[in-house]
Simulated scan of single mutants.
Amino acid sequence: MTLYSVLVANSALQTVDCTGIAEITVRELKKLYPITESTPTQSWHLMDDDARVLHAADESAFENLNIFEWNNPPYDLGLYNEKPFVYGIEGNWGPQF
């Protein structure tokens, strides 16, 4: 069984993304992490420079608050909800959250 945190509403809500995860090009990623003795060759060094990837400065980004409009909500949510707007909530439910 999977647990989801969901907000539902009659009207659109503001989304929040405190993760710092951004979509950037491989070219930009190569500038951030050039090949050096401390940064060995990675699989994305072989990718096309114009390819777009998701980048986070570190793993803590996955713990930060993210409230997003859920265009493809979990299966059977319709059995519990009749409101037109569905939002997913992600992050670490710690004191800062």
Rank of each mutant, 00 (worst) to 15 (best):
I21R: 11
W70Y: 02
P34V: 03
E28G: 03
T15R: 06
A22D: 11
K83E: 13
A51T: 13
A9Q: 09
K31G: 10
G88P: 10
H45K: 03
D58P: 03
L77M: 00
D49P: 15
S11A: 12
I89C: 13
V86S: 04
P40K: 10
D17Y: 07
Y80H: 08
N10D: 15
Q14C: 09
N92E: 15
K31P: 04
T25L: 09
H45A: 09
G88N: 12
D50K: 13
I67F: 05
E28L: 03
P84I: 01
P74H: 00
I89G: 07
F68A: 02
C18D: 12
A61L: 10
T25D: 12
L29P: 01
N81T: 01
S43M: 05
L32C: 04
F68G: 01
K31H: 11
Y87R: 04
P73Q: 00
V53L: 07
A12Q: 13
E69I: 00
T36H: 03
K31V: 12
A56T: 01
P34G: 03
E23H: 06
E28W: 03
V16R: 13
N81P: 09
L77H: 00
K83T: 04
L46E: 15
R27H: 15
E69R: 08
D58A: 02
P40Q: 08
N66A: 13
I89T: 09
E37K: 15
I35Q: 05
F85V: 03
